[in-house]
Structures are given as structure tokens and as C-alpha cells.
Nucleic acid binder design. Structure first.
Length: 555
RNA sequence: UGGGGCGUCGCCAAGCGGUAAGGCAUCGGAUUUUGAUUCCGACAUUCCCAGGUUCGAUCCCUGGCGCCCCAGCCA
């Protein structure tokens, strides 16, 4: 059972409802248009859930379209990973897989059309000169001397650009709009540039490539997109988006809407920084469990359901926003609390000897796989004279309020017996290396025969039957809520404790046969899953997805 | 003081002229063989500020203030 909710009302849902009600559209068509120049992250998940969600909820369809107009940055590896991520998140584009590069021929024809209409020209100015001619935010630009070339010359030059006669950067094709527009994207924007590079989807068929602005709206029109949803920074491009739709003989009239991109505290989301973390080996690849990439979150153990819930829960608006990491964390906890079977695992073992328990005796106890859901059944766990408990669950000089194992005090070993600590063994350094205790034989299963209340219950695992494993504890990648804020390099805020690798952890043996996709709760500690890359039989490696809430350690 | 946006609780966010939903966080308290879960309760007389229109304004108007985006042959 998932905990997913219906997305609450937002301005885009309202627009779609209105357009459907008024009959402006019989059905809607949206699209998710990633550029294949990196791996998808949770910010993309917001866009995916929005676009595919709108289509799903209002009976339309959503296309997956690769915005592959810049072969210098794009790779097949990214195309594959993006498809995998979208599928993993739980969305299906069906037959509707497209590439902006599918439309290169049509876009090229439209470029020539613009030249013929005297609305585009070949520019010989260098990039630096163009910048100088562009003007500033407060001053208008100056028209290029090449702006008045004849149609014939423009056409000839553009065709020569296409046929590969010029090197990269030699010339560009620009739209002829308005060099004094207060909107800089209307000051004769570049339409095509020369890039002699093989394209991941169309190979070597082109050496001129359209700019985003010249490709996006027309691609939307070709595909019959009704609602073209992008992030806020494209807002000032909208007049240009519309200029192309007005000027070109396009088959449909899509409309662009913008929403605020996702910002999450304690992480970074920009592709540049993600690339940097990966290429500088600050993290171990795009699927490093500490990254906000979908591949990283998946490997860490986040469920697609929890990410969808998150995307629904954060809402969609137009104001810059920062979502606290606790929202995401709570979404997985909610999902996993409901479905994860429980298990006992000791991460930092401390040997405990039950002195009055018969040597060599072993007892089986029934343990519930889920305390609130009997349908998940029971399992047996073996109890023996020597067990391991968590180092944190013992204290010789306990702080106020501590109700775990402490000399002279009783605690319950979950599902087993009530024990009383009778003494400790220390090494030369004075550290406790072994704890001794006595059990109450009348407390089989964990409840006292006389009904006395035992405040503390701790987890344990039989020393004799325990399975060893490596456990990787992940925490926030950065120690600052906004490492990306500027002035100081974000890498200064890397959290040195973002990964802690524990070896020699002691697990209950039932975990040996765990399904790699199953998330389990190690009671009192958190949710874990096997690392899909590194875990092998007899060399188990667990990843911690998220801790349990802990109101004790907070104090 | 070029243009375009945004401003409702610590963080998100509904609300669209009729008297401030919800989630996360936080703080109590109950139940609990996970200090988990669950459960109850508290948490904006107020919607960036100031005027105005109105019987009535977070929603309309005017004027401020604050923040974000745009000067790639990136998307």
C-alpha cells in the first residue's frame, strides 16, 4: 500500500482544468524535455511528476523528448540513464519518445524560411564582438553591419555553413528582431551555430545545430504539445518562443508556462556542481548514494513511491523556494515504516555474556516481522549465552534519563529475556570490552512473570549465529543548509561524515537471504537495503536509507 | 528607477471579495517489548509595508520595500 496523495491544487492544474472546461483543448499533451548532458536529479523528478502527473490526472499524454541540440555536451550514456530513471520513477512515455534532433530537417527548412522572409541573417561578427554589440541591461544594442545582407547572400552563406565549409565559431545564423528590445533575448538571438561534432542520436549528418530557443517551441508545435512547462529562468524567453510560433508556419500553438525549480537544503542540484563532484571523485559516481541524483537515491534505497509523494507534497508554485531535507526524509520513512519488515542488527557490537544461561543452550524465539502488520508474519531468532548488543546501549555512567543497559539495571532483550547487568570487563585502556549479566528465566519472550514494568528494550543478536556485514551509514552530503549560496566555495561545506563505513556488524542470520530490492528496518536504527553494486553472498553490504526519528539523541 | 517575475507560520503551500486548509519542523501529553509507529493537543486576530475602494480585502487600486531571473555561438 502506498502512502501517495493526490497533488493539491496548484496554478498549473487550475489552468489545465480551465482549458479543458472551456474547450480550448479536448485533451492535453505535456512533455518532459531533458538535455542528455548529465544524470537526472530530484529536481527533474519534480518536473517529471508534474508533466506526467498532469497527463495522467487529466487524461492526456506526456512525451519524453530529449533536448539534444548541443552535441558538444551530450552523450548516449546520459540518454540511457535518463530513460532508466524515468521508468524507475514509475512513468511510461509509451510510444511517445522523441528527440529535438528528429526535427533538425524541419527546423533547417524553417531557418531558410526565415531568411527568405528577411527575418534571419548570417552573422560574421565574433562572439566577443556580438557581445559588445548587444548593449547592456540599460542600454540598447547596436545593429550588426551584417544585418543588412541580401537574402541571396544569406541563403548561400547559410547553406555553406550547413555543408561544412566553415570552422566552428566562424559564423552563426541570427534572427532579425530588435536590437533595442528591453528583453535581451529579442536582440537578434542566435539561431544556428557551427559545431563539427558527432551527435549521439543523428551521428554526423549535421555540422550546424539549432539553439534551444529555435528548437524548443517548434518541437512543441510539431508534437502538438498543449502545455509546455519549464522552469522560471525561461520566462524571459517566452516572447521569443512566441515570436517563432507567430512567424513560422507551425502546425500548432503550444503555450509555455513556468514554475519554480526545486531547491533542497543540505545538497546541491546544479548540473555543473554534480558534474564536478563526480569528475573530481569527491563522490563515487553519479549513483553515489549521497547524491540527489535519481540513480543515487535509488541505490541508497529511496523508493520511487516516496519520491513521488515528495513531489506531490512540496507543491508547485512560482516563488523561489527551499524545501527542507526533512520533508524528503519523512516521505521515505512514511513509506518504509508501512512496508519494511523488521530485523535485528547490531552495528557497533559489544559482547554480552549471560552468566546464568546454560552453556551450549540455544532457544528459538518468535519475532514479528512488523509490529503493526501481522500479515508480514513472524520469524524465529536464536538466543544463546553470548550475544552482541549495541555499544550505545550500554553505559557505565549513564546520563540522566538513560534507560538502556547499565550496571545493576534491568533491560529487555527484544523478544527474548529480561536481563540485569552484573559487571563489566575492561581493557588496559579502561574501555568496556565485555558485559556480564544474568537473565530472568521467568521472562521468556520478554515479559516479566510478575508484571513488573521494564522501561528499556534493546536489540541484540546471538554471537553464535550472527552474520557479519558491512554497513554504510549515509548522511547529508553538506553540513550547511545552503552550500550553494555563493561567496564561499560549496565544497568547503562538504560533510566529512556523509559516509561512514562500518565493518564487522552483526546481523540476525535471516538477513542472509534478503531480497536485494527489499528495504528492511533494523529496529531502533533506521531503514536499510543491500547495496546493489557491492553486496555479494557472504560479503553483505547494507546501505542506510534514512535513520529512524530519534527523540532521545536529540536531547 | 532596462525588462520580466515573486513576497500567506521556521520551511513548503491552499486560498481567486465574506472573515486564514494541509504537510514538514517545533513543543506538550497518551499508548507502546523499536526512546520508532500510532494517537490526542498547541503552533498566523493575521497574509512584506503604507494608503485607498468596499458593509467587508490575503484576495481589487495606488505608492513603497525586499528578493529572484536575463547581457552563452548553454539548456
Amino acid at each position: 500500500m502506498s502512502t501517495e496523495t493526490i497533488p493539491s491544487s496548484n496554478f498549473l492544474r487550475t489552468i489545465v482544468e480551465d482549458d479543458l472546461k472551456s474547450g480550448k483543448h479536448a485533451s492535453i499533451v505535456t512533455r518532459f524535455p531533458p538535455e542528455p548532458n548529465g544524470y537526472l536529479h530530484i529536481g527533474h523528478a519534480k518536473s517529471i511528476c508534474l508533466n506526467f502527473g498532469l497527463a495522467r490526472d487529466f487524461g492526456g499524454r506526456c512525451h519524453l523528448r530529449f533536448d539534444d541540440t548541443n552535441p558538444a555536451k551530450e552523450e548516449q550514456e546520459y540518454i540511457e540513464s535518463i530513460k532508466e530513471s524515468v521508468r524507475w520513477l514509475g512513468f511510461d512515455w509509451g510510444q511517445n519518445l522523441y528527440h529535438a534532433s528528429d526535427y533538425f530537417e524541419q527546423l533547417y527548412q524553417w531557418a531558410e524560411y526565415l531568411i527568405l522572409q528577411e527575418k534571419a541573417y548570417v552573422e560574421d561578427l565574433t562572439a566577443a564582438e556580438m557581445r559588445a554589440y548587444r548593449g547592456t541591461l540599460t542600454e540598447p544594442g547596436i545593429e550588426s553591419p551584417y544585418r543588412s545582407r541580401s537574402t541571396d547572400e544569406n541563403l548561400a552563406l547559410f547553406r555553406r555553413m550547413k555543408s561544412g565549409e566553415f570552422p566552428d565559431g566562424a559564423r552563426v545564423l541570427r534572427a532579425k528582431i530588435d536590437m533595442s528590445s528591453p528583453n535581451l533575448s529579442l536582440r537578434d538571438p542566435v539561431l544556428y551555430r557551427i559545431i563539427h561534432a558527432p551527435h549521439p542520436h543523428v551521428g554526423n549528418s549535421w555540422c550546424i545545430y539549432p539553439m534551444y530557443d529555435f528548437a524548443h517551441g517548434q518541437s512543441d508545435a510539431i508534437e502538438g504539445i498543449t502545455h509546455s512547462i519549464c522552469t522560471l529562468e525561461f520566462e524571459s524567453h517566452r516572447p521569443l518562443y512566441e515570436w517563432f510560433l507567430d512567424t513560422l508556419p507551425v502546425p500548432a500553438r503550444p503555450r509555455q508556462y513556468e514554475f519554480a525549480r526545486l531547491n533542497l537544503t543540505y545538497t546541491v542540484m546544479s548540473k555543473r556542481k554534480l558534474h564536478e563532484l563526480v569528475s573530481q571523485k569527491i563522490v563515487n559516481g553519479w549513483d553515489d548514494p549521497r547524491l540527489p541524483t535519481l540513480m543515487g537515491l535509488r541505490r541508497r534505497g529511496f523508493t520511487p513511491e516516496s519520491i513521488r509523494t515528495f513531489c506531490d507534497r512540496i507543491g508547485v508554485g512560482r516563488s523561489d523556494s527551499w524545501i527542507e531535507m526533512s520533508v524528503l526524509e519523512e516521505c521515505v520513512r512514511e513509506d518504509l515504516n508501512e512496508r519494511a519488515p523488521r530485523a535485528l542488527a547490531v552495528l557497533r557490537p559489544l559482547k554480552v555474556i549471560v552468566d546464568n544461561y546454560p552453556e551450549g543452550q540455544v532457544e528459538e524465539f518468535e519475532a514479528a516481522n512488523h509490529p503493526q502488520n501481522p500479515e508480514l508474519g513472524n520469524r524465529t531468532i536464536n538466543f544463546s549465552r553470548e550475544i552482541f548488543i549495541e555499544q550505545d546501549d550500554f553505559s557505565e555512567n549513564p546520563p540522566k534519563g538513560f534507560f538502556r543497559m547499565t550496571p545493576g539495571n534491568e533491560v529487555r532483550l527484544r523478544y527474548a529475556y529480561i536481563v540485569r547487568c552484573t559487571g563489566v570487563v575492561k581493557d588496559e585502556a579502561g574501555a568496556v570490552v565485555e558485559v556480564h549479566c544474568e537473565y530472568d528465566p521467568a521472562s521468556r519472550g520478554g515479559s516479566a512473570a510478575d508484571g513488573r514494568k521494564i522501561k528499556g528494550t534493546i536489540h541484540w543478536v546471538s554471537a553464535q549465529y550472527a552474520v557479519d556485514a558491512e554497513v554504510r551509514l549515509f548522511d547529508r552530503l553538506f553540513s550547511d543548509p545552503n552550500p550553494d549560496r555563493g561567496e564561499i566555495d560549496y565544497k568547503q561545506f562538504l560533510n566529512p561524515l556523509s559516509i561512514e563505513v562500518l565493518s564487522g556488524c552483526k546481523l540476525e542470520p535471516n538477513l542472509r537471504d534478503l531480497d536485494p530490492e527489499t528495504r528492511v528496518q533494523f529496529e531502533r536504527q533506521g531503514y536499510f537495503r543491500l547495496d546493489p553494486q557491492d553486496s555479494v553472498i557472504d560479503q553483505l553490504v547494507f546501505n542506510r536509507v534514512v535513520t529512524l526519528k530519534d527523540t532521545w539523541s536529540k536531547k
